[in-house]
Write a protein that binds this DNA or RNA. Sequence first.
RNA 1: GGGCGUUUAGCUCAGCUGGUAGAGCGCCUCCCUUACAAGGAGGAUGUCGGGAGUUCGAGCCUCUCAACGCCCACCA
Length: 883
Amino acid sequence: MATVDIDSIPAVYDAKNTEEEIYKLWESEDAFKADSSSQKPPYSIVIPPPNVTGVLHMGHALDGTLQDILVRYHRMSGYETLWVPGTDHAGIATQNVVEKNLRMEGKTRFDLGREKFVEKTWVWANEHKSSILNQFKRLGASFDRSRERFTLDKGCSDAVKEVFVRLYEKGLIYKGAYIVNWCPRCQSAISDIETDYETEKSNLWEISYPLKDEPGAIVVATTRPETIYGDVAIAVNPTDYKYKDLVGKTVCIPLTGREIPIIADDYVDKSFGTGALKITPAHDPNDYEVGKRHGLKPIWVIDEQGKMKTCEEVHPDVQGLDRFEAREKTVGLLKLNNSLIRIVPIEHNVGKCQRCNTTIEPLLSEQWFVKMEPLAKAAIEAIDKGELRFVPERWTKNYLGWMTNIRDWCISRQLWWGHQIPAYYHKTTGEMVVAKENPDPENYVQDSDVMDTWFSSGLWPLSTLGWPNTENPDFKKFYPTSVLVTGFDIIFFWVARMIVSGYEFSGKAPFSTVYIHGLIRDELGQKMSKSKGNTIDPVGIIDKYGCDALRFTLTSLCTYGGQDIKISDERFEYGRNFANKIWNASRFVMINLDGVDNKPIDFGSLTIADKWILDKLNKTAKEINENIENYRIGETAHTLYEFFWNSYCDWYVEIAKIQLNDEKLKANTQRVLLYVLDQTLRLLHPIMPHITEAIWQKLPLQKDEKLLMKSKFPTYSEKLSFETEAREMEFVFETIKSLRNVRQAFNIPVSLKMNIEIISEGKEEEIFKDIEAYIKRLARVEGIKYIDAKEGEGIKQSASAIVGNSKIIIPLKDLIDINSEIERQNKKLEKILNEKKSLLGRVNNPKFVANAPVELVNQTKERIEELEQTQKAIEELVESLKI
RNA sequence: GGGCGUUUAGCUCAGCUGGUAGAGCGCCUCCCUUACAAGGAGGAUGUCGGGAGUUCGAGCCUCUCAACGCCCACCA
């Protein structure tokens, strides 16, 4: 015999304490730990590793919640489930933070030296990586901390070296001079996708270059006058008649007088500017290509700091100046020199460093690259072969577009924090060796560059599961992973690269599904960012509303199309209110469990309401399984909300109050209440893990598992299907609703119990007799009298309702106004007539009858019959009222 | 320039394979009915952006126009 201490269950759900307590319970049971030797089928997810520099934001909260839902659902559905947590060393971001801290001490990284600096950064990273993952704990994340990884740890480092060497040996990694996006502030090259473009107002300066040894000049338009010192040619379009005679001649660079040729190249757009273009191969990617075609040697005039070089090509007054100062100075000099023809204001796009927003300086330099095209092949075919799919599907196109136009990937970064490139140079001969280890530390020094952060995170599914040791039990059991959950913003940075490396090094896609969710935005639809000050801190929301409230709200806002999600603080009231509802409904059940036995439900003595709720539960379970399997997470939340609140609480619990007062029904009702609650908690658990576990722990159930999170997830069961009763219950709802409607329409006080008369026959009359108790209680009815159709004299001075083919009469002398009752009935009649009219229109259309499915035609006809009967009944009512 | 998305109730948005529109919030009425006022009961509200087409039937499919948003590429 079970008892529940009700005093221990307050009427308002205490999320904070409950969540803390429950997470501790899971941890103490080591419940998130996966077993690679298990016989169960595997289900695995690797977390998109948050930056060590990061703090939990709403995007993490959504991403983490979705993963946790999938993981918890599969864990309960019989899979050996592994969710791998970890963090990313975030090369530039982390180095920036540590450098900033140093600056506050008045130091730079160079004061410390590389070794000391990296050491210091490790200390910082170690301190912070637990902090972001601990914040994920506040989310209820059921990841396996015993398998936590870091993109710079030994295992990841080994994988990185292995991959680098293999790709190098295959000729897919090469070192070469190329124009890269150089960030003068970060002092490093960055990749194309780390560069953002911003529209800026600027000028097009038209500068005149005089011809050598003859009168005349050619005028070029440029947005970067400071680069004239690096010019190696003036290019015009070969078809441009204006300049036809000038091609092949020589001009002098104003201010310095250096001589350069006029060349012809298709690249030049005749209609832009003056149609003549200055070529600066060292500082512009397109110019570099043109220069290469014409065998022109680049001249460097801007250094890595973004300052003008001190060299003979640069005008002495400009040497050493910052590039923007140099621009002003150069324009001034040109003006004095009469070389400046005019200034045309324009708006153009300027590349910016994604990390620090510094204007990018295209710079010709020696960097390491990965040849992507051969690697992309398998990643492209994966889609056609059906080995990889995106949810929602529209992202496939995006992914394929990028993959098929892929460019080589600049992987070297001139930083100190990261995986150092495993290339070694002989101290005297300069000979280069690429190897996992330094072949001879006496005589070889390692390349000083490190690799792009995304190089190591691109190996994440491989490296976290033990690759390159393919005999590792985790790798054998859990690779490839099941699904990758992330936002669309890192499809190119990360997802695409993981797919490429998955195919290259394991021959398989690292996951078969990429589930892409929307981005979190503020209530105005703007991206959340610290600089805008519009962020909502998930931890703050958890403190205020509770973790499960946060999870439920976020989940409910997910759409199948993966739309972005606008949130505001108040939206989380939705989840909090639902959590409170769950808490209180459970509280009601527990309060009413006195004398409960642990016997199974007696199916022989179920009431119509019992059968209805079991049927509804069963259908809900079916839907939930389908929804989660198909990544319809938002619908999962809505379905559960609707079932629990509108079916279980609003109707079944209210009906149970009646049945619990009936000694014959009490025990079985308790069992049904408890059973449905137990099953519902299981269904809700993946989305709202804490509250469900907390309640479940209190329920006096016979339990196979100690924890709800390890218990079986409900599925559809034929045994619980009660179609007929489910339909009959609709009759009950109709009846009660119409009676409530009448009460409200005529302002009948709740305290006044009504007496009603029913005109009915056959099956319907039987049902009425079955559900009398429900009607009496839920519609506050005193007595029910069954009368013959002919005894209808009481209709005068009564309100009435039609349910099915039956008439319910509510005699209300003095309480009702006949005219308003007539009006009320006429309104209903009008609705019915409207519906009937349109349905008749269909049925009378021979084409509809010929083309529509037979079922639909029959359904429509049946509906018309129903409507006609109701119409007739209402018309009779109105007639008798009028008398 | 190329691609994608959005436009549905006052607000925020659902609506899967076409069968006469839904939720939450807000609003109006009533109710502290012994789980819950973070609650209960009842109610009002939409020519589904405009136009055309396909279909027996269109919020959903096709075309077109419009507005807003995002991504990619980038001409000095």
